[in-house]
Amino acid sequence: MSKILPIVLLMMSWSSWPIVQRHDVPKDQYIAQSTPEYLIDMPGEGHGVLFKPNWIVTVAHLIFADYSGRQITIANEQFTIEKVVVHPNAKKPSEALFKGDAKPLMDFMKTTSDIALIKLTKDVTHVKPIELYTGSDEKGKAITAFGRGSTGDGLNGSVFETKRQKTLRRMQNIIDRVNGNWLSIQFDKAEKGLQYEGIDGSGDSGGPLIYSDNDKQYLVGMFSWDFVEGDLKAFKHGLYGGRSYQLRISSYIDWITTQIDANP
């Protein structure tokens, strides 16, 4: 989905809903004042992150074609994609799973590995890559996340049409669940949430979850899919209490290292 569940429900494909924000905070306060240099806009929509001078990590459901030889923009400069490596366990759900009760789809989503790597033909020298988080103690950590998806608020939910604005927003949340290869956040109501509490949305897939420690930033996760209970047709994204799941970077450190060593 771009997050998996959202576009899927709207367009039967992998896409996510927007960064949705608190209803009691001015909308413009969620707009990012600057773009993190390591944040990369993928072809089409969604994001990737530069974590080594010539390597980008993203979510696998954003890989719609063979991007080898295509250009990608990094901090206003063009680079050529040499190779894309998709995790062998990156699976797409069948259309049948998008009908009726959400549980079979949710169970399926937890079994997939939504990660891909992109190798560039040359190093990026004008941007500093972000370091990947390797610890296993993500639960309870506050994160800041970014995305260019649509927006809305916790009282009314997301407004899909606003994703066309491509405005970069940032939000905060706390990782409250760690499940194997996944991190999870919940969109808490104003009195419980952080100052810029939010949840991801359509066009935000691959958006980075950033943990800061002693002024150093780490990539701990990337937006992937939304959690749904009950009838899929009745699902309303972006309301308070909503939950989403993110790719857990620390679970794939060994796989990432292996791919980089195999593709010098």
Rank of each mutant, 00 (worst) to 15 (best):
S94A: 10
G152Q: 10
E37L: 05
S224D: 06
V85H: 01
G203D: 10
K166F: 12
V127T: 13
N263M: 10
I4K: 02
V178H: 03
K192Q: 08
E82G: 13
G149W: 03
D226H: 14
K139H: 09
H23V: 11
I185F: 11
L168S: 06
V57F: 12
M12A: 08
D261C: 06
G241T: 09
M11G: 08
G206E: 00
D153V: 10
R177F: 05
S68T: 14
P93G: 01
I175G: 04
M171V: 06
Y133T: 04
H237W: 08
L120I: 08
P53E: 12
H61I: 01
G44A: 02
F108R: 04
S202P: 01
N173F: 11
P18E: 05
R243Q: 14
V57E: 15
E77C: 03
W14N: 01
K216A: 11
I40S: 13
I249L: 06
S202L: 05
I249D: 06
G48A: 04
V228F: 13
G152M: 10
F187K: 05
A142E: 14
N156M: 09
P264L: 07
D176K: 03
A116H: 00
V86W: 00
K119G: 02
N214Q: 13
E45A: 15
G198S: 04
D41W: 00
Q217D: 12
E138Y: 01
G221A: 08
S251I: 04
T257H: 07
N179H: 09
D101G: 12
D231S: 15
A60E: 03
S224W: 06
G140C: 13
R164S: 08
W55G: 01
V25H: 09
P6L: 06
H23R: 14
K119P: 04
D215N: 14
V49H: 05
V25T: 11
H126T: 05
V57C: 12
Q71G: 14
A234S: 14
G193C: 13
H47L: 01
T58S: 05
E95A: 13
E131F: 03
V25Q: 10
F235S: 15
V85Y: 02
G207W: 01
V159G: 04
I74W: 11
A190R: 13
K236S: 07
M109T: 06
I7G: 04
V84W: 00
V57P: 12
L239Q: 13
I118E: 11
G238F: 10
V57T: 08
E138H: 10
T112G: 05
P43W: 00
A190C: 07
K119H: 01
D101W: 02
Q246D: 07
E77M: 01
N156F: 12
G48K: 02
G157L: 14
L120W: 00
K166L: 13
M1R: 09
Y211Q: 03
Y240H: 09
P43L: 00
F235C: 14
K166R: 12
T58V: 03
Q165G: 00
